[in-house]
Amino acid sequence: MKHYLEHDTSKPVLELKGVTVKFGTETILDNISFSVKHGERIAVVGPNGAGKSTLFKTIAGTIRPGSGNIYIYGDKPLAHICIAYVPQSSMIDWDFPVTVYDVVMMGRTGRIGLFKRPSRQDREVVFYALGVVKMTEFADRQIGMLSGGQRQRVFLARAIAQDAGLLLMDEPLAGLDAASQQDIYRIIEYLSEEKDVTILVSTHNLNAAGKNFPKIMLLNKKVIVIGPGKEIINTKNLLSTFGGQLAVIESGNGIVAVNDTCCSHGEGVK
C-alpha cells in the first residue's frame, strides 16, 4: 500500500455535504455544504465565532464532524498528506527552539518516512520553498526572532515543502501591516496561479478579500453565500453574515460596510 494517495483531479478538490460540528450543545457549524474546484482561491469571511477555524480544522481532519461528510479528492479527510493547515499565529509557540529551516523541513516529515534522515532532495525542496517566499537568508534564525510577515512566510514555505495541493490559512493577515499583507497576497497568488494549489484563506477583512480573491465565502455557522465578490456582496448577505456587528450604508456608487468589532484585528475576546 502506498503511504499517500494520488489525486483524482476530475473530482472536486474539496466537497462538504451537510457537515455539522457541535461542541457540547453549542452548534459551531450548521449543515455546511459546498464544493471547491481544482486551483480555486477562496476567502472565507465572517465575524468572530463564525466557525472559520473550526471549518478549517474539520477539513484538515483534526476535528471530526458530528454529522455530514467531507471528501478531499474524493477520499475521506486524513487520507492525503497534501493538505497544509497554517494555524493562527497565536497557536504557535514562537519561543520553541526551532529555526526557520527546521519548521519548513517539518513539512517533509511525512514523505521522508520513519527512521530516515532528510535526503539531499528534501533539503533542496526546503531551500526552494524558502526562495519562493524570499526567506532564504533567514534559514538559521530562531522563529521568534522574525517579524509577523516573515513568520507567515515561513509557514507558507512549509506548505510548499509539503507539496500541498490544498492550503488552508487561518487568519494569516491578522496584525500585519499593509506591505506585509501584500507580500502574503503575492505568494498566495503565485501558488494558486503557477502551482495550481487550491487555497482557502480566512479573514475579517472583507475589502481585502474582495480585492485579492476571485471568490468569497460568507460564513456565520452556515454558508451564507459563496461566489465572486461583485455578485455576492450586498446588504442582505452582509447583514445575515455580520448581523449587528456591521452597519451597512448603501449609497449611489456602492456599499459602505462599517465593521464594528471591539478590537483592531478582530482577534481575541468577542
Binding site: 483534526t62 497544509a84 493547515y85
Partner: peptide, 15 residues
C-alpha cells in the same frame, strides 16, 4: 519534534 511543536501538522501529515 512535529508532535510537540505542531500536533495539527502531525495529524495532516498522517503521522
Amino acid at each position: 519534534l512535529v508532535t510537540v511543536f505542531d500536533p495539527v501538522l502531525a495529524k495532516t501529515l498522517r503521522i
